[in-house]
Every structure is written in structure tokens, then in C-alpha cells.
Design a protein around this nucleic acid. Structure first.
Length: 571
DNA sequence: GCCGTTTTCGGCCCGACTGTTTTCAGTCG
């Protein structure tokens, strides 16, 4: 049973306990464990085997026992019993925003409603509005939420959200009185998907700023517009909120709206033990009731005796304990990156020439660029065969003599065939500077087959890097079934690097996998998989994932200067 | 159900908003 399934079972337990009206703190305990399991870099099954469940934040004696039962038997008696106490489907009502446990139970007990569809019928039939404490406004609101739920209203990949923010920020940053404009929320934490966008800033003339914001050309609909805050929907359906606040509380406000929820809960619990109360306006000393304000987040954390915690780490894992000890890593940053080692050109399925890509890379300040076009393999458009790869190697040699200021590595993204063999003869792989291996076909293999296939490839001494290891595509294609832990252990043993692919639809390795690979001593490389010069900009997405994986520059090959990379690739 | 620089019981993050209420419960982030 994988972590996703375990998390779902415990989320369901939390929902049912809510419907039951259980102690809210008990419910919170289950929810905390759900979030922990979702962020866990290792499989819970593995922790059960090694008797290490106590390491899961929030798992105490009772929940540890329940997890063990669920993992070892595939069933959980407590969960089954709980489910039997409620009509099936009732917890799906909780998926509708504005419907909580109390209302769900009321709808179920009074009207027998147990699905969103039935709820809609009941509302239209006027049955819901006649219930106690219900009125037309509530039912209209529920209907709106049901329709939004159906429309799509799902979370948007960060690759789509960030450009929208950039565009809006560029427009607003022209306003001379607006300061500190920054996104908050899951976008700032660089989660791979975001629900909506929260922008924050400080200004003396908030109403004017808000007016400019709601009048932007990309705004399709204004949901709310006040003197300090506005909500709009921009083209593409994304909701964007802008909040203008006083300069002197900006630090605590930004911290509050950045979250995550679990991080903030943990932080406040800790503050409470110190006799302090945290809120978005600052820190209150509970004894004196005096409020201290903070213009920056760093000062806000410092006042609590904590090192600054970068937003990407604020997920309620071990970041607060680490900050207490002054032990927060110096995370890798975009300016640390000195080259890109996985890109495509018009020799295979890329758009631009090798030279155009190299010049664009030089423009970004890079020292090197690795050309890794596809091998001919199974139907990949214009893949290189042995003969064309030789030609390309020779062209790269000539280009390196002609172009200064950037070094071009020859390379190949060689296909890992279904049987685990590579789609290019070994003698040719020894002639290129960098060999990147990747799965592009037969993705439905069993976990056993796929694991053997990938491990076989990275055991080949000519393979330097395993590209996009899970092969997932956001938002639709699930990762292939593979024992990722076994892949990491093999990569560590064979000194094969794993890629963090920054293409927004991939982000693969993902954050928690990057964390685990690094922990096991695997060297990582952040690439864009660019198919055109513009795609080289995807590097920031890869860096964002690496930061969420607690990676420092030293963990990443392409933060090294050219000579070190050459030494690494030839060793 | 968890957890401990007020420890093995008695606490548990904090505030805003909304609708329906006549003082607050429910929901959300």
C-alpha cells in the first residue's frame, strides 16, 4: 500500500470523525498525520518494516498501531467500523466548499442526501432552504460552489500560474508607491500546483492600487473590491487576490499568508509555550499584552529565536526544529546554476539550432550547455541514429572552436528500451561527453519489470544521468510504477546522477524524491529539457523543486564551474 | 489523539467572514 492510499484512508477517517462530532483536537491529530504522510520522502511500508513509524510527525501510539494494521493486513478495523456508521457517500458532501460536517449531517439526516448530485436536486426542489438555519443565500452559495466544482476548479500547475503572476507583477510594479509586492501562499512555497494566487504589497494609497489592479486588461471578472483588498478572476480562470497592508506589519502578514497551515500551527504552538501569541499583525506577549510589529519575515522569525525559514521548507516537517538549532540549509538558488545539461535542438525534436541554443545559454550567463537530442529508438521524431550522432559530435567540435564564452558538451538522451537495453551502441556512448538515459515507451510495465529496466540502464557505466525518473506528466499522466527507493540506492552505488527536470509539465524528480535521493547521497542535476531557446527559462522551476527537496548548491552538478563538470563527466 | 523548559494530565493556533441570529455557530484559510 503506497503513501497516497494510506493518506487517503486517514483523511477519510478524519472526515468521518468530523461528521461524528468528535473532539476537534483528535480530528486535527489525524489531519496532521495525513499531511505528514503526504510529505514523507520514504514509503510508510518501509518505515513499518524498520519499526520507524515514530519518525512520522504527529504519529503517536494509537495512530502508529493503526498504520501498522493498515499496511500489514491491507485493512483497518477501526476505519471499517467508522464507515459502517454512516451512509455511504456522505463524506463527499464535504468536497463542496461552504459545506462542513454540521451541514452535511443535517442534509443527510433530514433529507437523506448522500451525494453532490442529490444535494443539487434537493436545493432546486426548495427542500434545503426550508431547513432550520438555512436560507436562500446559503443555498445559492452552495449551488454556485457545486457548479464551480463541476466546471473544473482544480488546482493549476505552477508552470501556468507563475507566468500569470509575473505579468500582473510587471504591470503593478510600475506604480511608484507600491512596495514589497510579493506572492504568498502555495505559490511562494513553490508547491507544484496552486489553488489560487495571493499577492501582497505595502502602500500608503491602497485604494488607488486596488483600482489599478481590478482594471488590468487580463482581469475577466471582479469578485470583490474593497479599499485594501480585491479578488479577481483572470483569463484562464485563475483567481488572484491582492492585499495591500501597512508597511510595519508586512513581515508577520506575509508569513501568515505564506503558510503552510501546518507550519503556522506548529509555529504558534511553540510560541504559546514561550508565552507569546502569533497572528498576522505581529507577536503579542501574553503577560503584558504588548504587540510587537515586524516589517520583515526574518525579524519575525528572529524574535522567536529562529533562523529564517525559506518558504519552500514551510511544510510542517522538521523545519522549525532545524531553525531552532540554526541548522537550516543554504538552499540552491537560480544564480548558482552555471549550465544546462539536457536540451534538444533541431537535430531531433527541438526547434532551434545548436548554435542558437548555445548563444541563448551564454546570454543567461551559463558557462556550458549539454546537447542531448533523442536517440532514434521507437518512433521518437527525428531521433539520431549512430551516423547522425557522429555528425553532430563533429559539428559541436567546430562550434566550440568558433563560439567563445560558452562550452558545448556533446551528448545524447538515449532511450531505455522495454527490455532495459539502450538504444545506442556502447562504443558510441563512450564518444559523447554526457549520456542521459530515459524511459519514453512501454510505461505500463509492472513495477518489477520497470525497476529492473531502469536499474539495468543506470548500471551501464556509460550512463551519466537518469532523466525524468518517474515519467509523470502534470496534470494527467501518473508516474510509472517503479521502486524509486531501489533506483536511488543503485544510483548512489553506481555514482549515476538523477535529474530534476524543470519542464513545468514534468517537475521530475519531484520535491520529496529529490529530498530522499539527496539523503541517500545521490548526486543531482537540474535540467530544463528545453526544446527551444525560451524553454531554457524553465530552470527556475527545477530550482524551485530542488529547494523544496532541501538541496544546497553542492548537491547539484550544474552549480559547479566548467572545469569541475568536465572532471566529473570524464571520471 | 498527541505531547511536554508550567510533563503523564490538561491543554491543544488564530482570526475573518457569513448568514442568521438577537449573541453566535459554522466554515474557511
Amino acid at each position: 500500500m503506497n503513501n497516497k492510499e494510506i493518506a487517503k484512508a486517514f483523511q477519510d477517517i478524519a472526515d468521518l470523525l468530523e461528521l461524528k462530532g468528535e473532539n476537534p483536537f483528535k480530528i486535527r491529530a489525524y489531519q496532521k498525520v495525513v499531511r505528514s504522510v503526504e510529505h514523507l520522502p520514504v514509503e510508510v511500508e518501509q518505515l513499518v518494516i524498520e519499526d520507524r513509524l515514530k519518525e512520522v510527525p504527529g504519529a503517536g501510539e494509537a495512530i502508529t498501531k493503526k498504520i501498522t494494521e493498515l499496511v500489514t493486513t491491507g485493512k483497518l478495523g477501526y476505519y471499517e467500523k467508522l464507515k459502517s456508521e454512516f451512509p455511504e457517500g456522505i463524506s463527499t458532501l464535504l468536497d463542496v466548499p461552504s459545506i462542513g460536517p454540521k451541514m452535511a449531517m443535517l442534509l443527510s439526516s433530514e433529507l437523506g442526501v448522500k451525494s453532490v448530485d442529490e444535494l443539487e436536486v434537493a436545493i432546486i426542489g426548495g427542500k434545503v432552504a426550508s431547513l432550520p438555519r438555512m436560507g436562500d443565500k446559503i443555498t445559492e452559495n452552495i449551488l454556485r460552489h457545486i457548479q464551480a466544482l463541476r466546471r473544473k476548479d482544480q488546482r493549476i500547475p505552477i508552470g501556468e500560474a507563475l507566468p500569470v503572476v509575473d505579468e500582473i507583477s510587471a504591470r503593478l510594479s510600475g506604480l511608484p508607491t507600491l512596495k514589497n509586492l510579493a506572492p504568498a501562499g502555495s505559490l511562494r512555497r513553490f508547491q507544484e500546483t496552486v489553488g489560487d494566487i495571493d499577492l501582497m504589497g505595502t502602500a500608503d494609497n491602497a485604494p488607488e492600487i486596488i483600482q489599478t489592479f481590478v482594471s488590468l486588461p487580463q482581469v475577466k471578472e471582479v469578485l470583490a473590491s474593497g479599499t485594501t483588498k480585491a479578488s479577481v478572476v483572470v483569463s484562464g480562470g485563475l483567481q488572484v487576490d491582492l492585499r495591500i497592508v501597512e508597511h510595519d506589519c508586512f513581515g508577520s502578514l506575509l508569513q501568515y499568508f505564506t503558510g503552510s497551515k501546518q507550519h503556522n500551527i506548529n509555529l504558534r504552538e511553540r510560541a504559546h509555550r514561550q508565552g507569546l501569541k502569533l497572528n498576522e499583525y505581529g507577536i503579542t506577549n501574553l503577560a503584558t499584552e504588548g504587540l510587537e510589529k515586524f516589517a520583515t519575515e526574518a525579524a519575525f522569525y528572529e524574535r522567536q529565536g529562529l533562523e529564517f525559514i525559506p518558504p519552500e521548507l514551510r511544510e510542517g516537517q522538521q523545519e522549525i526544529e532545524r531553525a531552532e538549532r540554526g541548522n537550516i540549509p543554504k538552499l540552491v538558488e537560480l544564480p548558482d546554476i552555471k549550465g544546462d545539461l539536457h536540451i534538444h535542438t533541431d537535430w531531433s525534436d527541438g526547434r532551434d539550432t545548436i548554435e542558437a541554443m548555445a548563444l541563448a545559454a551564454r546570454e543567461l550567463g551559463y558557462q556550458y550547455l549539454g546537447i542531448t537530442d533523442h536517440s532514434g529508438g521507437r518512433g521518437i521524431a527525428h531521433g539520431l541514429d549512430a551516423e547522425r550522432l557522429r555528425q553532430q559530435i563533429s559539428e559541436i567540435k567546430q562550434l566550440n572552436q568558433r563560439i567563445s564564452g560558452i562550452h558545448i558538451f556533446s551528448g545524447i538522451e538515449v532511450d531505455i528500451r522495454a527490455d532495459g537495453s539502450l538504444d545506442m551502441p556502447d562504443e558510441l556512448l563512450t564518444e559523447v561527453d554526457i549520456v542521459t538515459a530515459a524511459v519514453h515507451s512501454s510505461m505500463n510495465q509492472s513495477q518489477e519489470q520497470m525497476t529492473r529496466r531502469i536499474i539495468g540502464a543506470i548500471e551501464n557505466p556509460n550512463v551519466d544521468v537518469l532523466a525524468h525518473p518517474s515519467c509523470r506528466l502534470l496534470p494527467d499522466r501518473e508516474p510509472v510504477a517503479v521502486d524509486i527507493e531501489a533506483v536511488f540506492r543503485t544510483a548512489a552505488r553506481t555514482n549515476t546522477m538523477l535529474e530534476i527536470n524543470g519542464m513545468p509539465s514534468r517537475l521530475d524528480l519531484k520535491d520529496i524524491h529529490a529530498y530522499r535521493a539527496r539523503e541517500l547521497g545521490v548526486k543531482l542535476v537540474i535540467n530544463t529539457d528545453a526544446h527551444s531557446t525560451e524553454h531554457l527559462e524553465f530552470m527556475r522551476f527545477g530550482v524551485g523543486v530542488a529547494r523544496r527537496g532541501w538541496c544546497e548548491a553542492q548537491d547539484i552538478l550544474n552549480t559547479k564551474p566548467l572545469q569541475e563538470v568536465i572532471a566529473c563527466l570524464t571520471s
